[in-house]
């Protein structure tokens, strides 16, 4: 089911949690809402689910007004950050809940309900836990039961709030993989909220980057990583080296030093953003920045070096391939290979 969100505004007191948000989600997409805490991503998710109401704007499911319907009538599966499993019900009854509360006319028979719950527990590979209670499960198991419960009502949209937020790193990685596979199997339009950029880039088809109640950029993981639309996105997704520069007449200067980079549209005080691995390291004279290596750490295929820029107190951290070993004390030059310049705000 396609979702369309138009000009949504939501205020809590004087704080604008959402400040004019527009978003279109195509049928069958797996979309990530990515942003720091307080960016409004969870509020947007709750408004789509019908758990919160916007002060202004529209939400449409396949062109139909969703705001005219309550949460229970939207046929949306919602997975809560802390799972919100019914603590007094067994795993089986948790998953069966959505089927048991259906109106009598369309409610399944007990045998059908049992079969469906069994099927869902098989899907999340936890059928052996059916008689346990939520307090007896691990975090990862609770998360999967919460997902099975949400899927029981055959939702047309699946919404997940920080689905892996409370799990340890290893379980998290497994569940991510698993969510991707699951989405390929059942292909329901899904939106998940996360503050973890790696998670968003790895799992989603498209990523929506949010900050301060607004959407900063929408694009594929490759897009938002390689072509960040704003300083915020560049800084939030992937780590960046940020150098304060001054742009005058197409020339970019760091202090008094002229840099051999294109100014683009920026004018006046700006920031130069470079990914750690996009800083080309060479012998003195090869690049427009010069400095001294202070410290080197090697792991895997890269070496990470702290380099103190000359004539300037700035310490930058770069990633270089290991084919040209660096040692502390080396004088080197740096040249941004790929970079972006955004006017300083």
């Amino acid at each position: 089911m396609a979702i369309e969100v138009k000009n949504i505004v939501k205020k809590f007191g004087s704080f604008a949690a959402l400040d004019g948000v527009d978003l279109k989600v195509a049928d069958g997409e797996l979309l990530a809402l990515l942003g720091p805490s307080g960016s409004g991503k969870t509020t947007l998710l709750r408004i789509i689910a019908g758990l919160d109401w916007p002060d202004a704007g529209e939400v449409k499911f396949d062109g139909q007004d969703a705001l005219a319907r309550g949460a229970g009538e939207r046929n949306v599966g919602f997975v809560f950050q802390h799972y919100a499993l019914f603590r007094h019900m067994s795993v089986f009854e948790n998953v069966a809940f959505g089927l048991r509360v259906q109106p009598r006319k369309i409610r399944k028979t007990e045998a059908q309900i049992r079969a469906r719950v069994k099927e869902l527990l098989d899907l999340v590979q936890l059928d052996w836990l059916a008689e346990r209670y939520p307090s007896q499960l691990s975090g990862g198991q609770r998360q999967r039961i919460a997902l099975a419960r949400a899927l029981a009502i055959e939702p047309r949209i699946l919404l997940l709030d920080e689905p892996f937020g409370a799990l340890d790193a290893k379980v998290r990685k497994e569940l991510r993989q698993w969510l991707r596979t699951l989405h390929e199997e059942i292909h329901v339009t899904s939106i998940f909220v996360t503050h973890d950029q790696e998670e968003a880039l790895e799992v989603a088809n498209r990523v929506v980057v949010m900050d301060k109640g607004k959407i900063e950029q929408i694009g594929t993981p490759g897009d938002v990583y390689d072509n960040p639309a704003s300083a915020f996105v560049h800084g939030f997704i992937g780590e960046s080296i940020v150098l304060p520069v001054d742009v005058q007449g197409g020339q970019v200067k760091l202090g008094h030093k002229l840099l051999n980079v294109e100014a683009g549209n920026a004018v006046g005080p700006s920031n130069l953003f470079v990914r750690r691995h996009d800083m080309q390291i060479g012998a003195v004279g090869e690049g427009s920045l010069e400095g001294t290596v202070r410290r080197v750490r090697t792991f895997g295929p890269i070496q990470r070096a702290d380099i103190a820029l000359s004539g300037n107190d700035t310490l930058v951290e770069i990633d270089a391939p290991r084919d040209r070993p660096l040692t502390a004390g080396d004088a080197v030059s740096l040249q941004p290979r790929r970079y972006r310049i955004f006017a300083a705000s």
């Binding site: 689910a49 019908g50 758990l51 309550g70 949460a71 229970g72 009538e73 939207r74 949306v76 599966g77 919602f78 809560f80 802390h82 919100a84 499993l85 019914f86 603590r87 007094h88 809940f97 959505g98 509360v101 259906q102 419960r149 949400a150 029981a152 009502i153």
Partner: peptide
């Protein structure tokens, strides 16, 4: 309120939510 929200989003009415989720807890 998250258990109640979960119940509502699974299609339970207000009364069903109260008697099946809130009260047993």
């Amino acid at each position: 309120t998250s258990e109640e929200e979960a119940a509502i989003s699974l299609g339970a009415s207000g009364l069903a939510t109260f008697f099946r989720v809130t009260l047993p807890n």
